[in-house]
Amino acid sequence: MLELRLLQGSLLKKVLESIKDLVTEANFDCSATGFSLQAMDSSHVALVALLLRSEGFEHFRCDRNISMGMKLVNMAMMLKCAGNDDIITIKADDGGDTVTFMFESPNQDKIADFEMKLMNIDSEHLGIPEAEYQAIVRMPSSEFARICKDLSTIGDTVIISVTKEGVKFSTKGDIGTANIVCRQNATVDKPEDAIIIEMKEPVSLTFALRYMNSFTKATPLANIVTISLSSELPVVVEYKIAEMGYIRFYLAPKIEE
């Protein structure tokens, strides 16, 4: 028996909106730790890892570890039927082949049940080792989204370079080139407006903008995005989910051959 009651149902709605175009189907895993997902896009270039910790739920019952295969566009469609202020409860029976999403309006005058068929999904769970990154950039998530959107009007790939001068996002395309440099500015009025760059050594990597733009669909989940770069690893673009966990997008770099 699984029963997870999330007071801030909008978080789950936002999570699905941020991943449904990247990943078609995925197993949601539930254990005492929380509600989680790890999935790759169909071309295995990007990976998303989601964790919503059990403590973040108002009620969290998960009698045994369970993995529920879902088609994400279908799940997103159902969650779209929940109001932004609704409480969402996810319910499933052990060994069952359906999951139920229950939506309660804030004043309890409307209660809706949406039952969705589960599917069997063969998916490999990859081990993601703890790693030291050469550079970690924290910046306003809206600023990062803006940069990715702007650059993708010029080119298909972005070179992200971190030096002691700051972080530079560059692209080039048929019509020309673009460079956007963001310098560290830790002394702003609001901490969420700060750009903070932790650099152990300079790093420069090339990524497909199509994926970066897809990741920025998670912008409504967090004011700050953290971009971790290392020349030997996929970049990690992380959005913390208030008090609950995170959504992390991993993207393999493009390598010059």
Partner: peptide, 14 residues
């Protein structure tokens, strides 16, 4: 030419 790598080049199955 930039060649796109895959995630599985970096992370291996558990």
């Amino acid at each position: 030419v930039n060649q796109q790598r895959q995630i599985t080049c970096f992370f291996t199955p558990n």
